[in-house]
Protein backbone atom coordinates (compact mmCIF):
# COMPACT_ATOMS: atom_id res chain seq x y z
CA UNK A 1 0.00 0.00 0.00
CA UNK A 2 0.92 3.61 -0.42
CA UNK A 3 2.92 4.66 2.69
CA UNK A 4 1.09 8.00 2.91
CA UNK A 5 -2.24 6.18 2.90
CA UNK A 6 -1.00 3.84 5.62
CA UNK A 7 0.13 6.79 7.73
CA UNK A 8 -3.26 8.50 7.28
CA UNK A 9 -5.09 5.31 8.23
CA UNK A 10 -2.96 4.96 11.34
CA UNK A 11 -3.67 8.50 12.44
CA UNK A 12 -7.38 7.94 11.80
CA UNK A 13 -7.26 4.74 13.85
CA UNK A 14 -5.65 6.70 16.68
CA UNK A 15 -8.34 9.37 16.43
CA UNK A 16 -11.08 6.74 16.44
CA UNK A 17 -9.58 5.07 19.47
CA UNK A 18 -9.36 8.41 21.23
CA UNK A 19 -13.02 9.28 20.58
CA UNK A 20 -14.27 5.82 21.51
CA UNK A 21 -12.10 5.82 24.62
CA UNK A 22 -13.62 9.15 25.64
CA UNK A 23 -17.17 7.82 25.29
CA UNK A 24 -16.36 4.62 27.20
CA UNK A 25 -14.45 6.39 29.96
CA UNK A 26 -17.21 8.94 30.66
CA UNK A 27 -19.64 6.08 31.27
CA UNK A 28 -17.07 4.12 33.25
CA UNK A 29 -16.17 7.12 35.40
CA UNK A 30 -19.80 7.83 36.28
CA UNK A 31 -20.56 4.20 37.01
CA UNK A 32 -17.39 3.51 39.02
CA UNK A 33 -17.67 6.74 41.02
CA UNK A 34 -21.36 6.10 41.51
CA UNK A 35 -20.88 2.65 42.98
CA UNK A 36 -17.95 3.84 45.10
CA UNK A 37 -20.29 6.46 46.56
CA UNK A 38 -22.97 3.78 47.09
CA UNK A 39 -25.31 5.14 44.43
CA UNK A 40 -26.20 3.79 41.03
CA UNK A 41 -24.82 6.33 38.55
CA UNK A 42 -26.71 6.78 35.25
CA UNK A 43 -29.56 4.26 34.99
CA UNK A 44 -32.31 5.65 32.75
CA UNK A 45 -31.06 5.84 29.16
CA UNK A 46 -30.54 2.33 27.83
CA UNK A 47 -29.74 -0.78 29.87
CA UNK A 48 -28.06 0.44 33.09
CA UNK A 49 -27.59 3.83 31.46
CA UNK A 50 -25.26 2.55 28.73
CA UNK A 51 -26.56 4.99 26.09
CA UNK A 52 -26.36 7.96 28.46
CA UNK A 53 -22.96 8.99 27.06
CA UNK A 54 -24.31 9.07 23.50
CA UNK A 55 -27.01 11.46 24.66
CA UNK A 56 -24.37 13.55 26.42
CA UNK A 57 -22.19 13.71 23.31
CA UNK A 58 -25.18 14.82 21.21
CA UNK A 59 -25.96 17.47 23.80
CA UNK A 60 -22.34 18.66 23.76
CA UNK A 61 -22.31 18.87 19.96
CA UNK A 62 -25.53 20.83 19.65
CA UNK A 63 -25.05 23.22 22.55
CA UNK A 64 -24.82 26.96 22.08
CA UNK A 65 -21.20 28.07 21.98
CA UNK A 66 -20.96 31.56 23.48
CA UNK A 67 -17.64 33.42 23.43
CA UNK A 68 -17.12 35.85 26.33
CA UNK A 69 -16.41 39.39 25.10
CA UNK A 70 -13.16 39.96 27.00
CA UNK A 71 -11.31 36.83 25.86
CA UNK A 72 -8.03 36.97 23.99
CA UNK A 73 -9.61 35.66 20.76
CA UNK A 74 -6.66 34.01 19.02
CA UNK A 75 -5.39 32.15 22.08
CA UNK A 76 -8.90 31.29 23.26
CA UNK A 77 -9.70 29.45 20.03
CA UNK A 78 -6.27 27.92 19.71
CA UNK A 79 -6.09 26.49 23.24
CA UNK A 80 -8.43 23.47 22.82
CA UNK A 81 -6.45 22.42 19.74
CA UNK A 82 -3.14 22.83 21.55
CA UNK A 83 -4.46 20.61 24.34
CA UNK A 84 -5.99 18.08 21.95
CA UNK A 85 -3.19 17.56 19.40
CA UNK A 86 -0.45 16.39 21.81
CA UNK A 87 -2.76 13.93 23.48
CA UNK A 88 -3.67 12.50 20.07
CA UNK A 89 0.00 12.36 19.02
CA UNK A 90 0.93 10.58 22.26
CA UNK A 91 -0.87 7.45 21.01
CA UNK A 92 1.75 7.07 18.30
CA UNK A 93 4.30 5.14 20.33
CA UNK A 94 2.00 2.95 22.46
CA UNK A 95 2.46 -0.70 21.43
CA UNK A 96 -0.90 -2.53 21.31
CA UNK A 97 0.87 -5.68 20.19
CA UNK A 98 4.22 -6.60 18.67
CA UNK A 99 3.18 -5.10 15.34
CA UNK A 100 0.24 -2.87 16.28
CA UNK A 101 1.59 0.57 16.97
CA UNK A 102 1.18 3.78 15.03
CA UNK A 103 4.97 4.10 14.90
CA UNK A 104 7.74 1.88 16.25
CA UNK A 105 10.08 4.55 17.58
CA UNK A 106 13.53 3.87 19.01
CA UNK A 107 12.83 6.58 21.58
CA UNK A 108 9.17 5.75 22.15
CA UNK A 109 9.10 6.38 25.89
CA UNK A 110 10.81 9.74 25.56
CA UNK A 111 8.51 10.63 22.67
CA UNK A 112 5.42 10.01 24.79
CA UNK A 113 6.75 12.08 27.68
CA UNK A 114 7.96 14.81 25.34
CA UNK A 115 4.61 15.12 23.59
CA UNK A 116 2.69 14.99 26.85
CA UNK A 117 4.80 17.84 28.20
CA UNK A 118 3.10 20.12 25.67
CA UNK A 119 -0.35 19.62 27.22
CA UNK A 120 0.20 22.13 30.10
CA UNK A 121 0.88 24.74 27.47
CA UNK A 122 -2.60 24.53 26.04
CA UNK A 123 -4.02 24.57 29.55
CA UNK A 124 -2.10 27.74 30.36
CA UNK A 125 -3.30 29.23 27.09
CA UNK A 126 -6.90 28.37 27.95
CA UNK A 127 -6.58 29.72 31.48
CA UNK A 128 -5.04 33.01 30.49
CA UNK A 129 -7.05 33.77 27.39
CA UNK A 130 -10.38 33.19 29.15
CA UNK A 131 -10.07 36.54 30.98
CA UNK A 132 -11.44 34.97 34.13
CA UNK A 133 -9.73 34.84 37.51
CA UNK A 134 -10.80 31.28 38.20
CA UNK A 135 -9.64 30.13 34.79
CA UNK A 136 -6.27 31.76 35.28
CA UNK A 137 -5.87 30.31 38.77
CA UNK A 138 -6.84 26.86 37.50
CA UNK A 139 -4.44 27.11 34.57
CA UNK A 140 -1.62 28.27 36.84
CA UNK A 141 -2.22 25.46 39.30
CA UNK A 142 -2.37 22.84 36.54
CA UNK A 143 0.83 24.01 34.92
CA UNK A 144 2.65 24.48 38.22
CA UNK A 145 1.96 20.93 39.28
CA UNK A 146 2.54 19.40 35.87
CA UNK A 147 5.94 21.02 35.44
CA UNK A 148 6.95 20.14 38.98
CA UNK A 149 5.98 16.50 38.56
CA UNK A 150 7.47 15.93 35.12
CA UNK A 151 10.83 15.38 36.83
CA UNK A 152 9.63 12.66 39.27
CA UNK A 153 7.60 11.05 36.45
CA UNK A 154 10.58 10.77 34.13
CA UNK A 155 12.84 9.63 36.96
CA UNK A 156 10.43 6.92 38.04
CA UNK A 157 10.38 5.46 34.52
CA UNK A 158 14.17 5.47 34.34
CA UNK A 159 14.87 2.38 36.52
CA UNK A 160 12.85 0.32 34.02
CA UNK A 161 14.86 1.80 31.17
CA UNK A 162 18.03 0.93 33.08
CA UNK A 163 16.93 -2.69 33.39
CA UNK A 164 15.98 -2.98 29.72
CA UNK A 165 18.65 -0.78 28.18
CA UNK A 166 16.28 0.66 25.61
CA UNK A 167 13.74 3.46 25.26
CA UNK A 168 11.72 1.51 22.72
CA UNK A 169 8.40 0.52 24.27
CA UNK A 170 8.29 -2.79 22.40
CA UNK A 171 11.74 -3.69 23.71
CA UNK A 172 10.50 -2.90 27.22
CA UNK A 173 7.56 -5.28 26.73
CA UNK A 174 9.84 -7.98 25.26
CA UNK A 175 12.15 -7.73 28.28
CA UNK A 176 9.24 -8.66 30.56
CA UNK A 177 8.49 -12.09 29.05
CA UNK A 178 9.79 -13.85 32.17
CA UNK A 179 9.00 -11.41 34.93
CA UNK A 180 6.75 -8.37 34.87
CA UNK A 181 8.63 -5.36 36.16
CA UNK A 182 6.15 -4.48 38.88
CA UNK A 183 7.77 -7.18 41.04
CA UNK A 184 11.43 -6.04 40.98
CA UNK A 185 10.42 -2.40 40.42
CA UNK A 186 7.55 -2.05 42.89
CA UNK A 187 8.85 1.21 44.45
CA UNK A 188 9.23 2.66 40.96
CA UNK A 189 5.63 1.66 40.19
CA UNK A 190 4.36 3.46 43.29
CA UNK A 191 6.33 6.59 42.43
CA UNK A 192 5.19 6.42 38.81
CA UNK A 193 1.52 6.11 39.72
CA UNK A 194 1.64 9.04 42.14
CA UNK A 195 3.48 11.23 39.65
CA UNK A 196 1.14 10.30 36.81
CA UNK A 197 -1.93 11.06 38.95
CA UNK A 198 -0.53 14.55 39.41
CA UNK A 199 0.26 14.87 35.71
CA UNK A 200 -3.30 13.88 34.89
CA UNK A 201 -4.84 16.44 37.29
CA UNK A 202 -6.73 13.56 38.88
CA UNK A 203 -8.18 13.65 42.37
CA UNK A 204 -6.45 13.75 44.94
CA UNK A 205 -4.40 16.20 42.88
CA UNK A 206 -7.13 17.98 40.91
CA UNK A 207 -6.58 21.45 42.37
CA UNK A 208 -6.58 22.84 38.83
CA UNK A 209 -10.32 22.38 38.45
CA UNK A 210 -11.37 22.02 42.08
CA UNK A 211 -15.10 22.56 41.49
CA UNK A 212 -15.75 23.81 45.00
CA UNK A 213 -13.20 26.63 44.69
CA UNK A 214 -12.60 27.41 41.02
CA UNK A 215 -15.92 26.68 39.19
CA UNK A 216 -14.25 24.41 36.61
CA UNK A 217 -10.71 25.78 36.57
CA UNK A 218 -9.16 26.47 33.19
CA UNK A 219 -12.19 25.18 31.30
CA UNK A 220 -14.73 27.49 33.00
CA UNK A 221 -15.29 29.73 29.97
CA UNK A 222 -15.44 26.96 27.41
CA UNK A 223 -18.69 25.49 26.16
CA UNK A 224 -19.94 23.05 23.57
CA UNK A 225 -17.33 21.22 21.50
CA UNK A 226 -14.42 23.40 22.62
CA UNK A 227 -15.11 22.13 26.13
CA UNK A 228 -15.58 18.70 24.58
CA UNK A 229 -12.04 18.77 23.18
CA UNK A 230 -10.55 19.74 26.55
CA UNK A 231 -12.54 17.00 28.22
CA UNK A 232 -11.69 14.40 25.59
CA UNK A 233 -7.98 15.06 25.84
CA UNK A 234 -8.17 14.65 29.61
CA UNK A 235 -9.67 11.17 29.19
CA UNK A 236 -7.24 10.30 26.46
CA UNK A 237 -4.31 11.35 28.67
CA UNK A 238 -5.72 9.00 31.29
CA UNK A 239 -5.63 6.18 28.75
CA UNK A 240 -2.08 7.02 27.69
CA UNK A 241 -0.74 7.15 31.24
CA UNK A 242 -2.49 3.90 32.12
CA UNK A 243 -1.15 2.37 28.91
CA UNK A 244 2.35 3.48 29.82
CA UNK A 245 1.96 2.01 33.31
CA UNK A 246 0.93 -1.30 31.74
CA UNK A 247 3.79 -1.19 29.24
CA UNK A 248 6.42 -0.31 31.81
CA UNK A 249 5.35 -2.46 34.72
CA UNK A 250 2.72 -5.04 33.73
CA UNK A 251 4.16 -6.67 30.64
CA UNK A 252 2.31 -4.58 28.04
CA UNK A 253 0.33 -6.78 25.64
CA UNK A 254 1.90 -10.04 26.87
CA UNK A 255 0.50 -12.63 29.27
CA UNK A 256 2.55 -15.09 31.33
CA UNK A 257 2.48 -18.89 30.82
CA UNK A 258 0.79 -18.72 27.39
CA UNK A 259 2.77 -19.58 24.22
CA UNK A 260 3.65 -16.59 22.04
CA UNK A 261 1.73 -17.85 18.97
CA UNK A 262 -1.56 -18.04 20.83
CA UNK A 263 -0.97 -14.67 22.48
CA UNK A 264 -0.31 -12.90 19.18
CA UNK A 265 -3.97 -13.29 18.18
CA UNK A 266 -5.47 -11.28 21.00
CA UNK A 267 -2.55 -9.14 22.21
CA UNK A 268 -4.33 -5.81 21.57
CA UNK A 269 -7.33 -7.00 23.59
CA UNK A 270 -5.04 -7.97 26.47
CA UNK A 271 -3.36 -4.58 26.32
CA UNK A 272 -6.63 -2.65 26.34
CA UNK A 273 -8.05 -4.82 29.12
CA UNK A 274 -4.98 -4.26 31.29
CA UNK A 275 -5.09 -0.54 30.55
CA UNK A 276 -8.71 -0.32 31.62
CA UNK A 277 -7.89 -2.19 34.82
CA UNK A 278 -5.26 0.44 35.61
CA UNK A 279 -7.76 3.17 34.73
CA UNK A 280 -10.23 1.52 37.11
CA UNK A 281 -7.55 1.73 39.80
CA UNK A 282 -7.02 5.43 39.06
CA UNK A 283 -10.78 6.00 39.35
CA UNK A 284 -10.86 4.07 42.59
CA UNK A 285 -8.27 6.49 43.99
CA UNK A 286 -10.33 9.35 42.57
CA UNK A 287 -13.41 8.14 44.40
CA UNK A 288 -11.82 7.60 47.80
CA UNK A 289 -9.16 10.22 48.52
CA UNK A 290 -9.74 13.82 49.56
CA UNK A 291 -8.01 16.59 47.63
CA UNK A 292 -4.59 17.68 48.96
CA UNK A 293 -3.59 21.33 49.40
CA UNK A 294 -1.42 23.11 46.85
CA UNK A 295 1.52 23.56 49.23
CA UNK A 296 1.28 19.93 50.36
CA UNK A 297 1.50 18.91 46.73
CA UNK A 298 4.74 20.78 46.12
CA UNK A 299 6.20 19.45 49.40
CA UNK A 300 5.40 15.91 48.29
CA UNK A 301 6.96 16.43 44.90
CA UNK A 302 10.25 18.02 45.84
CA UNK A 303 10.86 16.64 49.33
CA UNK A 304 9.55 13.08 49.06
CA UNK A 305 9.16 11.87 45.49
CA UNK A 306 12.35 13.37 44.05
CA UNK A 307 14.77 12.01 46.71
CA UNK A 308 12.95 8.67 46.74
CA UNK A 309 13.24 8.46 42.95
CA UNK A 310 16.94 9.27 42.97
CA UNK A 311 17.62 6.75 45.73
CA UNK A 312 15.72 4.02 43.88
CA UNK A 313 17.51 4.89 40.65
CA UNK A 314 20.81 4.43 42.45
CA UNK A 315 19.72 1.08 43.92
CA UNK A 316 18.56 -0.15 40.52
CA UNK A 317 21.74 1.00 38.83
CA UNK A 318 23.95 -0.83 41.34
CA UNK A 319 21.76 -3.94 41.15
CA UNK A 320 21.86 -4.00 37.34
CA UNK A 321 25.66 -3.71 37.37
CA UNK A 322 25.95 -6.44 40.02
CA UNK A 323 23.76 -8.82 38.05
CA UNK A 324 25.84 -8.12 34.94
CA UNK A 325 29.05 -8.82 36.87
CA UNK A 326 27.68 -12.07 38.29
CA UNK A 327 26.41 -13.21 34.89
CA UNK A 328 29.86 -12.65 33.43
Amino acid sequence: MNPILVACLRVLAGLGLMLLNGVVLIYMLRKVLGHLHVRLGPMNVGWHGTVQTVADVLKLLTKEDPTPRAVDKALYFLAPAVVFIPSLAAYAALPFSKTWAMADLATGLLFTFGIMSLVPLGILMAGWSSANKWSLLGGMRAVGQQIAYEVPLLLSALPVVLMVGSLNLNDIVAAQDKLWFFIPQFPALLLFVVASLVELNQTPFDMSEAESELVAGFSSEYASMKFGLLFLSEFSNLFIMAGLTVTLFFGGWSLPFIPAQIQAGFAPIVFVAKTYLVIFFFMWIRGTFPRVRVDQLQQLGWKVLLPANLAWLLVTGVAVKLVEAVAR
Binding site: L105, A106, T107, L110, F111, F113, G114, I115, S117, L118, P120, L121, L124, W128, L136, M140, V143, G144, I147, E150
Partner: peptide, 24 residues
Protein backbone atom coordinates in the same frame (compact mmCIF):
# COMPACT_ATOMS: atom_id res chain seq x y z
CA UNK B 1 15.51 12.17 16.99
CA UNK B 2 16.80 12.35 20.54
CA UNK B 3 17.75 16.00 20.27
CA UNK B 4 14.33 16.82 18.83
CA UNK B 5 12.55 15.11 21.71
CA UNK B 6 14.76 16.77 24.30
CA UNK B 7 14.13 20.11 22.63
CA UNK B 8 10.40 19.42 22.94
CA UNK B 9 10.60 18.16 26.51
CA UNK B 10 13.00 20.71 27.96
CA UNK B 11 12.70 23.86 25.88
CA UNK B 12 9.09 23.77 24.73
CA UNK B 13 7.69 21.74 27.60
CA UNK B 14 9.54 23.34 30.50
CA UNK B 15 11.53 26.47 29.68
CA UNK B 16 8.88 28.16 27.55
CA UNK B 17 6.13 27.19 29.96
CA UNK B 18 8.18 28.55 32.83
CA UNK B 19 8.67 31.83 30.98
CA UNK B 20 4.92 32.04 30.36
CA UNK B 21 4.25 31.18 33.95
CA UNK B 22 6.50 33.93 35.27
CA UNK B 23 5.11 36.47 32.81
CA UNK B 24 1.56 35.68 33.89
Amino acid sequence: EFLALVQLLVYAGAVAVLVLFVVM
